[in-house]
């Protein structure tokens, strides 16, 4: 402990500078975190958080008993991995192109436009999906009919939905993520590129050997940051696109939608919190493990 006070005395300005942030998280995150206790109680308004009956792990039962948990976890994890990796790679590619292309006006305009989907609510995304894929007069089926081909009823088949959902998620986050990589590229010193140019390296080589390696820490960081939420799903995305269509659940059901359905008719704070805690715990273990591995490989890239 004395080490801590020595450190405090030595770096008191630094401590002061980070203090507001720490206080913020204590007040708005750590203290409210007592709420995880709801997961172990039968909530009643009389008792409140600590006066309600303690029921141990009973609230977790509905997750495990149904036998659906394996498939749900698999779906959630796979969707998130697809979102994270496809999303990040595409964002990185866009950022690299945008930073190297010459047309100033072109760059600015396209960058702005790529941000637009971020503003489109999932309700409207759902409307697009409906308009594209419905059997009666959806754009795709109308096209198929005009070409004299057999129309395809998307809503009775599970196969296409994985791609549809991943596409729309990646599409929505494209502009947002690109900005991060673009900012990171801007932090790369021009000297490297100049030197490489003199050495006769072409643009592909420069990207391959300068830009990409220097972006790697950011890439790893963003992946690590996302991994903690690997079991948490974009509820709105799935809900607006799939809705109550049980026919598609084999391919599209994630933990959030499952919990929503389980508790929609008879909501229970305890069970809701329990589900969240399960997701958190899974993410926690994963991120600590991966971070540990990253740390072994390349200390600088680790999150903490």
């Amino acid at each position: 402990m004395s080490g801590f006070f020595k450190e405090l005395a030595k770096n008191k300005v630094l401590f002061l500078m980070i203090l507001p942030a720490l206080l913020f998280f204590i007040v708005f995150s750590y203290i409210p975190m007592v709420g995880v206790y709801y997961a172990f109680t039968n909530f009643s308004f009389d008792g409140g958080l600590f006066g309600s009956e303690f029921v141990g792990l009973a609230n977790f039962k509905f997750l495990f008993e149904s036998g659906a948990l394996y498939n749900l976890t698999k779906n959630t994890v796979l969707y998130n991995l697809a979102f994270i990796f496809i999303g990040n790679i595409l964002q990185l590619v866009c950022a690299v192109f945008l930073s190297e292309l010459a047309g100033k006006w072109f760059k600015k305009t396209t960058q702005s436009i790529m941000f637009l989907p971020f503003f489109i609510s999932f309700v409207l995304v759902g409307a697009f999906v409906y308009n594209l894929f419905n059997f009666e007069n959806g754009v795709i089926n109308s096209l198929l009919r005009q070409l004299g081909m057999q129309p395809y009823d998307f809503y009775l088949h599970t196969a296409p939905w994985k791609y549809i959902i991943v596409f729309f998620n990646v599409w929505k986050g494209l502009g947002y993520g690109t900005v991060i990589y673009l900012a990171a590229i801007m932090g790369i010193s021009d000297e490297y590129h100049e030197a490489a140019k003199i050495d006769g390296a072409n643009i592909f080589k420069r990207i391959r050997y300068i830009t990409i390696p220097l972006l790697r820490p950011t890439f790893v960081l963003l992946i690590l940051l996302s991994l903690g939420g690997i079991l948490k799903g974009q509820f709105d995305l799935f809900w607006q696109i799939v809705g109550n269509n049980g026919m598609l659940y084999d391919a599209t059901d994630i933990i959030d939608t499952y919990v929503y359905r389980s508790l929609a008719i008879n909501f229970d704070i305890g069970m809701g919190t329990a589900a969240g805690l399960f997701q958190s715990f899974f993410g926690f273990v994963l991120v600590v493990t991966v971070n540990w591995i990253v740390r072994k490989v390349q200390k600088d890239y680790a999150l903490f």
Binding site: E7, N11, L14, F15, M17, I18, A21, L22, F25, F28, S29, Y30, I31, P32, M33, V34, G35, V36, Y38, L49, L225, G228, G229, I269, G272, T273, G276, L277, S280, G283, F284, V287, A302, L303, F304
Partner: peptide, 30 residues
């Protein structure tokens, strides 16, 4: 502060901050 390599507690404090994205007590206590 967290980017300063000579700041001893940077990893711990990073974890302290990151931890809040993992666990949450939910809407009601907040």
């Amino acid at each position: 502060v967290l980017s300063r390599k000579d700041f001893k507690y940077r990893d711990k404090l990073s974890f302290f901050i990151y931890f809040t994205t993992l666990f949450s007590g939910g809407l009601i206590p907040w």
